[in-house]
Design a protein around this nucleic acid. Structure first.
Lengths: 348, 348
DNA sequence: GTGAAAGCGCTAACAA
DNA sequence: TTGTTAGCGCTTTCAC
């Protein structure tokens, strides 16, 4: 059978030709109309949209991607989706992305470089237009591949020397300073810090910011009161036990993240220590759950919505308008102290 | 410039032609080799793989999808990604999918039919090969569109009368019976149930299973002790307060999910009630966090891994081998009681 | 067993 | 302003 100029395909999903035939225009006009080209006359535009509606037509994204080279797909890689911080981040990121007509691909690196590499590979295979690497500073070396492929990338807290890479700087210092000052004002002098794993840049930054904040109020941090944990609840438990065993245990603890603080809360309760009467506690992140711990957790808020917005905006700019001279390659997300019920004056 | 038979494209990602040129074979042979066709001779196969490796080539998934009609993309729609049950489910689903060469698209319906509809639309646009609707029985009416498009679909706890639709049945009864028997054996007679929202099939099933379990041990459930909550922590708090206000409050509470139980735990603590000495408590789900509440939560485990496996398997079978006569369209996931520290004998 | 060529549904360059 | 047409990178007949 010879190929026909306009094949209508009954039974199958309508394609651009079906629409063109119904609207009695060329497929180019359909394409232009759908993509909002300004040159189409109002009359044809109307006919096309009517046909689109009548057929319930929507364009094939894969065909579009194939010819345009753009997938309208962004990847987001998180450390661990079962840490409540990340689903909240993903949700925000997704909402924004969808509102801009993008779809997202989610992966967890599980803090494993090999897994991260595989994630990147898979995203590259799916031709994502950009990747948000929200692993907070671990294993940047494997990101070379992304950069090498010219895919826009945005990192939390790590600068990559590449024009396609953007960075989100997190101003932990402000929040941590506020927390330390808050504790000092309550009368605390022995303030400990349960740090995150030193394999994470963000963990090191937070720890350094804590030291600086202590220094700033003339209460230099003691080495023995700074303990490396792993940002998990269990880690918080053992961190607390370690501190308790000290000759002069601290009266207040600042934690590198909320999960650690929740671990401390639990361990303290088990040992019969009351928070905040016997021990003051500050978390970091302000995950949804922080409001519902017992007592509600005083914590340093790191807005997932702000972070997601910055990440999306970085990728969108890089992807849609890379030549723009005022392209923003650095974003700042701030933190702030949220005082709830886990901090009070130290025991007399 | 005339079109050349074999264009090599320096600088760009290698495509199938680049590989063919390097291996000195036709693009058809490259395609056959990559797709594991048995007809290619060993010699050519070897040359192709070598070229693939040398060029670090991987096929363009969008081109593949366009011609084959299959995207190797599965959608998964959950109720709410910030409920810890779902990230754990998503993670399992992703792991399995990736191991089979699939990618996943994640969306939250947020218990809103309009949002669900949009999710489905977006997934249809991306030409997913199947969708797992893990919303546990809400708003099945909007799923017609999926079925109408002939996309395989798998539902938790809801049967759709369509050959492309599969169902995962959840055997809550076993777990709930075990929980009720456990409480009865401890000596409890006044056992309450904090139900999920009646808009969810699963919530109603759980509630009915509770009634049946009570009946079975000759301890018929009292109407006033069955309270509809909303599967959130806050809902658990108000559910508990409601029960406490009763003339003869229950000595044990079974909750329709863990978040509700955690809410009860919190509210009970606030009122000075000790769990389990003054009140026994059973959750349902066994989210990761259940192990870390104070006291650790006795709960009915619903394995996310099992659920994910069933969902993936349902979609894979429907997608890859729909004509198979022994295609499985119903899957069963069981539940079991995990006894931890939140249950004990009632106060004397 | 291998290759040539059609065409998946679309965008964009070029013609008219 | 509108239409014609050449591919995007791949799979899959159909010849050989």
């Amino acid at each position: 059978m010879p190929r026909q100029a306009t094949r209508s395909k009954p039974g199958r999903n309508p394609d651009i030709r079906t629409v063109a035939a119904l609207a009695k225009v060329s497929i180019a006009t359909v394409s232009r109309t759908i993509n909002g080209s300004p040159v189409v006359s109002d009359g044809l535009k109307k006919r096309v949209w009517q046909a689109v509606k009548q057929l319930n037509y929507f364009p094939n994204t894969h065909a579009r991607t194939l010819v345009s080279g753009r997938s309208r797909l962004f990847g987001i890689i998180v450390e661990n989706i079962t840490n409540p911080f990340f689903p909240e981040l993903i949700q925000s990121f997704e909402e924004i992305a969808v509102s801009f007509g993008y779809e997202i691909l989610v992966s967890s690196s599980n803090s494993d470089p090999a897994t991260l590499t595989k994630c990147i590979h898979r995203m590259l295979e799916r031709k994502v237009d950009g990747v948000a690497v929200m692993t907070f500073g671990e294993e940047e070396s494997v990101l070379d591949e992304l950069v090498h492929h010219g895919v826009p990338i945005v990192l939390a807290e790590f600068k990559l020397d590449d024009p396609k890479a953007s960075t989100i700087l997190l101003d932990y210092a402000t929040g941590i300073q506020a927390a330390v000052r808050h504790l000092a004002e309550l009368g605390h002098k022995r303030i400990a810090f349960l740090a995150g794993p030193h394999s994470l840049h963000s963990a090191i930054t937070r720890e350094n910011d804590f030291r600086a904040a202590m220094q700033a109020i003339g209460l230099p941090a003691q080495k023995k009161w700074i303990v490396e944990c792993d940002h998990t609840l269990k880690g918080g438990v053992s961190g607390f036990e370690h501190l308790r065993a000290l000759a002069s245990p601290p009266t207040a603890i600042v934690c590198s993240n909320d999960m650690t603080a929740i671990g401390v809360l639990r361990a303290a309760f088990k040992e019969g220590l009351r928070v905040p009467q016997d021990l003051s506690l500050v978390g970091l992140d302000d995950i949804d759950f922080a409001e519902f711990t017992l007592p509600p957790l005083t914590t340093i808020r790191l807005s997932r919505a702000d972070l997601a917005r910055a990440a999306f905006e970085a990728l969108r700019q890089q992807s849609e308008d890379p030549a723009n001279p005022k392209l923003q390659r650095e974003f700042l997300v701030s933190t702030s102290l949220v005082v709830r019920g886990s901090t009070a004056a130290p025991p007399a």
